[in-house]
Structures are given as structure tokens and as C-alpha cells.
Computed example of a mutant assay.
Amino acid sequence: MDTGTMQAYDSGAVEYAEDWETQPAGTDLQELVRRYFTSGPTADVGCGSGRDAAWLTANGFPTVGFEPSDGLRAEAERRHPEVEFRPAALPSLDDVAAGSFVNVLCETVLMHLEPATVPAAVRRLVDILTPGGVLYLTWRVSATDQRDDAGRLYAAVDAAVVKDALGDAECLLDEEVTSASSGKTIQRLVVRKPF
């Protein structure tokens, strides 16, 4: 993950977690998860406050939340003690075994990566899926690379680059929409890894 973004999340973890936890429910995300995910081990990569990981776990998708920010991970553990949280960062996801999750959720994380690392990150997200597993992947849409006042990177992720990195995964959904939770424009992909 981008260094400036990591520093912002570590230093402002309490405030960011509170903001995410009090946003409207991600009903669009939840509806799609119910449609495309199957019961089984699930990863929430870049889980932030743990809100989505907790919802997944409570709704039949036992989830491990992976979060590189120590501050955010501590907030997630405090707020959602029923969920397991581990340190791991894209693009490498060190210590996360290949083929270990039936479902992978990666909600608005890619735009926090240096653009050159996005293909490797996407390939790794597919790599940790079991054959036939499903990846739900979103990022915030931006025309140019920019940083917010806290220093968080919002890179202009090229959808064509992401789709190319998905290789022969089957595309189940591809849309640009407004997130029900954040109110921001996001690109959303749902893909299935080949059997």
C-alpha cells in the first residue's frame, strides 16, 4: 500500500473507523454478495474498520479480515471481536495461502496502491481464491491521481489494466455505480476463478 495512505490510516484510525461504521449500510454490496458468494471461507482484503467482515461473518460467510494498517486493524478488533483479523497488504498479501478462500471481497482498496502495482495485486486476489471462487472488487473512480488533505492516495485506476490482470476469470458483473454506503462513484467487478 502507498506509504502516505498507510500513515494517514494509522494516525487517524479512530476517526476513519467511526466514519465507516456510521455510514449508511452497504445494501448494494450486501445484495451482490448474497447473489454471487457461496458459503465458505471468505477474505475481506483491506477490511478497514471490519464493518463488512462482521456483516459477512454474521450472514453465513465466515471471514478473515486482512488489514495492513496497525491502527485500523486494532479498531477492527475492538469493534468486531467475533471476527479474525490479520495483517496483510496488497500487492503481495504475504502469508496468505494460494487457493484458500471461496470468496474474496476487496472494497475500494485498489486506488490506494501505486498504479504500477495494481496488476500484481489483482492477480494475487485471484490467486488466493479456490477454483470456482468469486472475487468482488471495487475501486473509487477518479480521472487523475490525487491525494486528499490527509495524504491518502486516490489513484486513477485503469479498468482495462484490472480486467487484463484478471486473466481468464469469468466476468459476472461489470458496472460503474454510486456506492450506497459512501455516495462515491465506484467501478465494481464480480468475477469467478476458473475451475
Rank of each mutant, 00 (worst) to 15 (best):
A88W: 01
A150L: 12
Y154H: 14
V126D: 02
T144S: 12
Y136H: 09
L166Y: 10
G167E: 09
A98G: 12
L135S: 03
A116R: 11
D148R: 00
D148H: 08
L105M: 14
T117E: 13
A98V: 12
E82W: 06
L105S: 00
E114W: 00
P119M: 05
W139A: 02
S142F: 02
L135T: 02
I128F: 04
A159Y: 01
I128E: 04
N103L: 08
E114P: 15
E114V: 13
A155V: 01
A159C: 10
T138R: 02
E114A: 15
P115N: 12
V141A: 03
F85A: 09
L110D: 06
M111G: 00
D168S: 08
L135Y: 00
P87H: 05
L129I: 06
P131C: 10
L110F: 08
T108G: 06
G133T: 09
P115S: 09
V102E: 11
A121D: 06
P115G: 09
E82Q: 15
T138C: 06
A165T: 02
A159K: 07
A150T: 11
A143G: 07
E107A: 10
A121R: 03
A165E: 12
A160K: 09
D168H: 00
A165L: 10
V83A: 00
T108I: 14
L153F: 07
A165D: 13
K163G: 11
S92M: 07
V102M: 08
Y136C: 03
A98R: 11
E114R: 08
Y154Q: 07
C171L: 15
A97Y: 04
M111V: 10
D164A: 14
D145P: 08
T108R: 00
V162N: 03
V102K: 08
A120R: 04
D164R: 08
V157Y: 08
E84H: 01
Y136P: 03
G167D: 05
M111R: 04
D95A: 15
N103T: 10
R140G: 01
V157S: 08
V83R: 01
C106A: 09
D168T: 14
Q146Y: 13
D145I: 14
V161F: 00
V118I: 15
A155N: 11
F101R: 00
Y154D: 11
L113V: 13
P87L: 10
V162I: 11
A98K: 00
D158C: 10
A169D: 06
L129F: 01
D148Y: 09
P115D: 11
P131G: 11
A150Y: 03
L110R: 02
G99L: 10
I128G: 03
C106E: 03
T117D: 15
H112V: 11
L153V: 13
T108L: 10
T138H: 03
E84T: 15
V96D: 06
D127G: 12
L93T: 05
